[in-house]
Design a protein around this nucleic acid. Structure first.
Length: 803
RNA sequence: GCCGCGGUGGUGGAAUGGCAUACACGGGGGACUUAAAAUCCCCUGGCCGAAAGGCCAUGUGGGUUCGACUCCCACCCGCGGCACCA
């Protein structure tokens, strides 16, 4: 064995070679390129280029899908596998506050590092299409989409509670609030009302659920999205206020229990509170509302349910009973109108509330023991007048119809999904392209004036008023109103992190187009993304947001389909060796650079695919990577010792054809771990049959293995004397004839237990098999003088003799 | 509480109705070496047995089936998501 496997020596060489040759550039369709082959668009989530560099979790997703991309190219597909940078975000801004270094400089540095790391892994990204969300040429189009949303009435401003740190005097993003405290200074975070830009995602709630039928996402992803949107069918009922024409409308999914409603409870935020509260109760109610405003989210949810009587009453439309109206902060303001009917006998929360305030508990559905606890199941109605005896299911239908006829209620659908809070009071984000004019109101920036560039500032410190740092740059703020040319002011809020990533997959198709967001022809050719992989944590935010934007773009005829991603998978996170999360503070972070340096990129790639099922969480184990490296060493020697042999024998050929089948299928099904295991298994077979394995199989084996270990295969391929890259070879196709066995091992069972195995010709008949089986010494012993009751024969698998 | 996923050797895991424990790690033994590392070869679920062989074992308890890790029912445990959503 003359040459030794030395990844450090060969990997860089081939990475440079591939880059120079431009193998991985996707071809856009043009009239002259008729024979491009079918397209295949593979997308992995682009990273936020943090100062910490690439995480082994990124590597897991990128290398697995890199293997898929490489295989698809070899199968003749025109593959697009792009990469870019989701570079707006708080860490860069916080770093700027600390050091005064502009975020764009930090980001540039981090991107260079990420890119170097990705290249050192031998990933086949098409770097010609690299995008960066903080590039004005990119965010011009993010702003453009916002303008379309605004013009179509889907972007609006509304007073919303935001997290506020009274010590830093700054609005906090949800992720900056840890256990109710400000992440920076540890002060108790409070709530502050502020005007916020909102996007009307709720308008798309139903379609976002329904269209999941059209796509191939992992079931758990679909389930989580459906859950998050939270569609529920129910009834709205109007409770007339006593002695007025006003009414309170409540939402319920259990209209069958309305005869048991002993109070109506409205949330403290409900504007009706002021209107209805009786004089004598005013101080008490005001005090209560003030108190609940000071409560943290945690307190509101976990402490005892509380409330206060307003002194007012309304009328239950079913039985005309007088029902007291209470204010309670356990009622969610933003859901179902912020008002509920309280049915203590049949709702656990209402039961608790009623016990505390000694309100009546009236049983109207039989089946439980309401002295002990609320009965929340369906049952037969009692104490419900003309509806007595009906089942809950029927009563829900009939009572709703009754209400509809009398115009006192209606069937309705509620969603848990809320509109998307789209404003951030931060510097490092896309400026929202709106101009405020005293005369004309909110005026969109003219499209020809896009992008609204983020101005350079000297101070990134928060302003203390809750406005973004942009509010301090008067020269930037002062503009002419595009409509009336009068003096006006720019919007100073910026967009959230999620903005740039909500449409980035479109820009890869046409990254340099400055006339259009993307050429429609290219959209038509490439979209949908054929396979999108990313983290489970993005299911309910990024994935949903981007589907929403895409559907909107479809509605305004910018894109040709209504769903952007045909298939979505998710990789499990990689924990540290100690099974905790990798974190700098724990000191258990694995840096891909170190692994590559020590074991080579191919070992890292292969290990991350081999470590366990792709979608499952798993702990890092450095022992495992040593095992993979050992395998590569053996593989190297094996190839070199067999590559000049003549022809493989039947057994090897048959095993190899099975391997082709397995690898092809496993890659399509994201079963990377078993694919790698199959390579190991086949190598073990070759290892003990070296003289029977020839170049016919070895050459194809290199091709088959190239998507996984892209460097070692390229080196061995070239050592074998080939000039053209292994990655430009055709993907092997298995020969069904060679896969078919001539002989099989037939399992003989007695009463379902394996007692013997025999080698027989394939497709042996039942009678023949039975004859042979019964003649086996071992089997004779088991049967002895017992009577054979039944014989089950499964062709080419087993024969089971029941005695 | 609701939704989803999972529970298999000492460890990561394989097998979705038909040979349980592939592949790898770790462990044990041997070869090579003055020695060690590396490498190579053999063994490695538990129990009984000298061996042949047998019995037991896929979270627990039932069921369906000639046959169950796999399907059905009930339960226990772990993980992830949502959660005062009426």
């Amino acid at each position: 064995m003359s040459i030794k496997y030395n990844p450090q020596k060969i990997e860089k060489k081939w990475q440079n070679f591939w880059e120079k040759k431009g193998f991985y550039r996707a071809q856009n369709p043009a009239p002259s390129q008729k024979r491009l082959g079918p397209k295949f668009y593979i997308l992995v989530e682009f990273p936020y280029p943090s100062g910490d560099g690439l995480h082994v979790g990124h590597v897991r997703s990128y290398t697995a899908l890199d293997a898929v991309a490489r295989k698809k190219r070899m199968q003749g597909f025109n593959v697009l596998y792009p990469m870019g940078w989701d570079a707006f975000g708080l860490p860069a801004e916080n770093y700027a506050i600390k050091t005064g270094i502009h975020p764009s400089i930090t980001v540039k540095k981090n991107i260079a590092n990420f890119k170097r790391q990705m290249k050192s892994l031998g990933l086949s990204f098409d770097w010609e299409r690299e995008i960066n969300t903080t590039d004005p040429k990119y965010y011009k189009w993010t702003q453009w989409i916002f303008l379309q949303l605004f013009k179509n009435g889907l972007a609006y401003k509304k007073k919303m509670p935001i997290n506020w740190c009274p010590s830093c005097k700054i609005g906090l993003a949800n992720e900056e609030v840890v256990d109710g405290e400000c992440e920076r200074c540890g002060a108790q975070a409070t709530i502050k009302e502020k005007e916020q830009w909102m996007l009307k995602i709720t308008k798309y709630a139903d379609r976002l659920i329904k269209d999941l039928d059209k796509v191939n996402y992992l079931e758990k992803i679909k389930a989580q999205q459906i859950n998050w949107i939270g569609k529920s069918f129910g009834t709205e009922v109007d409770f007339k206020l006593e002695k007025t024409d006003k009414k309170i409308t409540v939402f319920t999914t259990r209209i069958d229990t309305i005869f048991g409603a002993t109070a109506v409870v409205i949330s403290p935020e409900n504007p009706l509170v002021q209107e209805i509260t009786k004089k004598e109760k005013e101080t008490e109610v005001k005090r209560y509302i003030k108190q609940s405003k000071q409560k943290s989210e945690f307190e509101r949810i976990n402490l005892e349910k509380t409330g206060v009587f307003t002194g007012a009453y309304c009328i239950n439309p079913l039985n005309n009973e007088k029902v007291p109206i209470w204010v309670g902060d356990y009622v969610v303001a933003a859901y179902g109108g912020g008002a509920v009917m309280m049915v203590p006998a049949h709702d656990a929360r209402d039961y608790q509330f009623a016990k505390k305030y000694e309100l009546a508990i009236k049983e109207v559905v039989s089946g439980g023991d309401i002295k002990k606890e609320a009965f929340t199941d369906y049952g037969a109605l009692i104490n419900s007048g003309e509806f007595d005896g009906l089942s809950s299911e029927k009563a829900i239908k009939i009572i709703t119809q009754w209400l509809e006829q009398k115009k006192l209620g209606r069937k309705t659908i509620q969603y848990k999904l809320r509109d998307w809070v789209f404003s951030r009071q931060h510097y490092w984000g896309e400026p929202i392209p709106i101009i405020h004019c005293k005369k004309c109101g909110q005026v969109p920036v003219l499209e020809k004036d896009l992008p609204v560039k983020l101005p350079f500032v000297k101070k990134y410190q928060p302003t203390g008023t809750g406005e973004s740092p942009l509010a301090a740059i008067s020269s930037w703020i002062k503009v002419k109103c595009p409509k009336c040319k009068g003096p006006a002011k720019r919007e100073t809020d910026t967009m959230p992190n999620w903005a740039g990533s909500s449409w980035y997959f479109m820009r890869y198709l046409d990254p340099k187009n400055d006339k259009k967001i993307t050429d429609p022809k290219k959209l038509k050719y490439w979209i949908p993304v054929d396979w999108y992989n990313g983290g489970m944590e993005h299911t309910t935010l990024h994935l949903l947001y981007s589907r929403f934007w895409y559907k909107f773009l479809y509605d305004i005829k910018v894109v040709p389909q209504s769903e952007p991603y045909a298939k979505r998978t998710s990789h499990g996170i990689i924990l540290a060796q100690d099974s905790r999360k990798m974190s700098k503070s724990w000191g258990n972070v694995i840096n891909p650079d170190d692994i590559i340096k020590q074991y080579g990129a191919d070992s890292l790639r292969l290990y991350e695919m081999f470590m366990g099922p792709f979608d499952q969480m798993i702990a890092w184990d450095t022992k495992g990577i040593i095992g993979v490296r050992r395998f590569l060493d053996r593989f190297w020697n094996l190839v070199l010792s067999c590559i000049n042999n003549k022809k493989s024998n039947k057994e090897i050929q048959s095993a190899f054809n099975k391997l082709i089948k397995k690898i092809t299928e496993d890659l399509d099904n994201a079963k990377f771990n078993t694919a790698v295991a199959a390579f190991m298994e086949f190598s073990n077979l070759v290892s003990s049959n070296q003289d029977k394995t020839g170049k016919d199989v070895i050459e194809k084996l290199l091709i088959l293995f190239a998507p996984f270990a892209s460097h070692i295969t390229e080196e061995l391929w070239s050592l074998s004397g080939f000039k053209k890259s292994v990655h430009l070879q055709k993907w092997p196709v298995y020969n069904p004839k060679l896969i078919k066995e001539e002989k099989i091992t037939l399992v003989i069972q007695i009463n379902g237990k394996v007692r013997d195995k025999i080698e027989v010709a394939v497709d042996i008949s039942e009678n023949k098999a039975k004859e042979i089986a019964l003649s086996q010494e071992k089997i004779k012993k088991w049967i002895a003088d017992k009577k054979i009751k039944k014989v089950v024969f499964i062709k080419n698998k087993l024969i089971n003799i029941v005695v």
